[in-house]
């Protein structure tokens, strides 16, 4: 039981990701979908950062001796956390922000063109456009 609770950050990652995934698939408002997409990606950041943890490790910074500014071997901790996933997530955060920006830009344009950001209403308008085209094609 304690094993399961000790890795609670993985549980948070899964819950967060599933909440986001549910929102992307089930929400009918485009802004809510964009928010859910952000949540989904945040879950993945948490996953990567959790995997970087090393038992007994600290932040991967080489501590210099305060007075002499010379690296002091005694001040070096036994283990460092793995910095690689952190760096990867810096990139992924930038990617996530860009996705959100492009999504919001498109949603603004959808509002201007269609007058709504509700998925169901958009589908209805598109169906009508398609039906009109099909009628014209049949002539």
């Amino acid at each position: 039981m304690s094993d399961v609770l000790e890795i609670y950050n993985y549980w948070i990652y899964i819950v967060l990701m599933m909440v986001g995934f549910y929102g992307v698939m089930a929400k009918r408002n485009l802004i809510k979908q964009a928010i859910a997409l952000g949540l989904f990606q945040t879950g993945i950041f948490l996953f990567y950062i959790s995997m970087a943890v090393v038992d007994g490790g600290t932040a991967p910074i080489w501590m210099a001796d305060g007075a002499t500014k010379v690296p002091n071997p005694l001040a070096v901790p036994a283990a460092f956390d793995n910095p690689l996933p952190h760096v990867l997530m810096l990139t992924a955060i930038v990617v996530g922000v860009s996705i959100l920006a492009v999504a919001l830009a498109i949603i603004i344009n959808i509002r201007r063109a269609f007058g709504t950001i509700e998925y169901d209403e958009l589908t209805k308008i598109e169906r009508e456009m398609e039906a009109r085209e099909a009628r014209e094609a049949a002539q």
Partner: peptide, 17 residues
């Protein structure tokens, strides 16, 4: 055609997932 916007957003959401 304004439907380019909805098509693009649909691709964005599925593509990002």
């Amino acid at each position: 055609d304004p439907r380019a916007l909805t098509a693009s957003l649909r691709y964005l959401i599925l593509g990002s997932v």
